[in-house]
C-alpha cells in the first residue's frame, strides 16, 4: 500500500516536470525558462528521495544534497548573466 502511494507521488511529480518543460519550451522571456529549470531541479530532488525509498537503499542521499547545490549555483549564474551580461567580472584595473 505504501508502495502504491509512493508510485502515485512519483507520477504527480513527473506531471509537474512535464508542465515545467512546457513552460521552458514556450516561455516568452528568458527568466521564465530559468524559473522553470529551477523548479525542475527542485522537483528532481524529491523524486530522488522517493526512488531511494522505493529501492530500499541509502546510497542516493548524497545526490539530493549535491543536486540542490548545483541547481542553486546554476540559477545564480543564469541570473547574473541575464542582469550584467557576464558571469565572472574582472577587477577594475583600468
Amino acid at each position: 500500500m505504501t508502495e502504491k502511494i509512493l508510485i502515485l507521488s512519483l507520477v504527480l511529480f513527473s506531471i509537474t516536470i512535464i508542465v515545467a518543460l512546457f513552460r521552458i519550451i514556450r516561455g516568452p522571456s528568458m527568466p521564465d525558462r530559468v524559473v522553470a529549470l529551477d523548479m525542475i531541479g527542485v522537483t528532481l530532488l524529491s523524486m530522488i528521495a522517493i526512488v531511494s525509498i522505493l529501492l530500499k537503499t541509502k546510497a542516493f542521499l548524497e545526490v539530493i544534497l549535491i543536486l540542490g547545490i548545483l541547481s542553486f549555483i546554476g540559477t545564480i549564474a543564469f541570473s547574473k548573466y541575464l542582469e550584467r551580461g557576464k558571469i565572472i567580472e574582472r577587477k577594475s584595473d583600468s
Binding site: 527568466p31 524559473v35 529551477d38 541547481s71 542553486f72 540559477t75 545564480i76 541570473s79 547574473k80 542582469e83
Partner: peptide, 11 residues
C-alpha cells in the same frame, strides 16, 4: 530557494 527566486526576479 527564496534567494534564487529573488535573484531571477531582479534580473
Amino acid at each position: 530557494a527564496p534567494v534564487a527566486g529573488h535573484l531571477i526576479c531582479r534580473a
